[in-house]
Amino acid sequence: MTGFGATEPEVDLTTTVNGEEVDARVPARLHAADFLRHRLGLTGTHVGCEQGVCGMCTVLVDGQAVKSCLMLAAQLHGRDVRTVESLATGDDLNPLQRAFTEEHGLQCGFCTPGFLMTATALAERGVPVAREEIREEIAGVLCRCTGYEGIVRAIEGHLNGGAA
């Protein structure tokens, strides 16, 4: 991102993003999603509303799914951040990602990182979740393309026995 005006207040932060330590000086008002996207080049985290409604910007912070448009970059200081870019290993998609492609859980794919990170947090809780509960759990992320069926099927298969 291009430089801000000279008077722009800035802060220093140290955070771990996808397993790597990052030191940065950022404008105090820069939100976390823009920091990840434009400072770190992790453009898989998307922005759809900047109001905490659409869920496009969902990432994991200390294992919790959070909406990064509602956080300031400065608030990532000392935290452990994971984004969609952390899911695949080399050229291999992880089982959740594979479930999404098998169940046709994405069309335009703009919402996909938000759902993947929400489902990752859900899976890491380690408790079985019924289909109707999945629908409630992912209601914080919107999708305008798929009608949700493929997304719900993919997450259900992944959570309940890793059918994928």
Binding site: R37, H46, A88, L93, T101, C108, G109
Partner: peptide, 14 residues
């Protein structure tokens, strides 16, 4: 289309 989109590797205009 899936692989790039699933890996956060789509290229949207922003």
């Amino acid at each position: 289309e899936d692989e790039r989109l699933l890996r956060g590797d789509g290229r949207f205009t922003d």
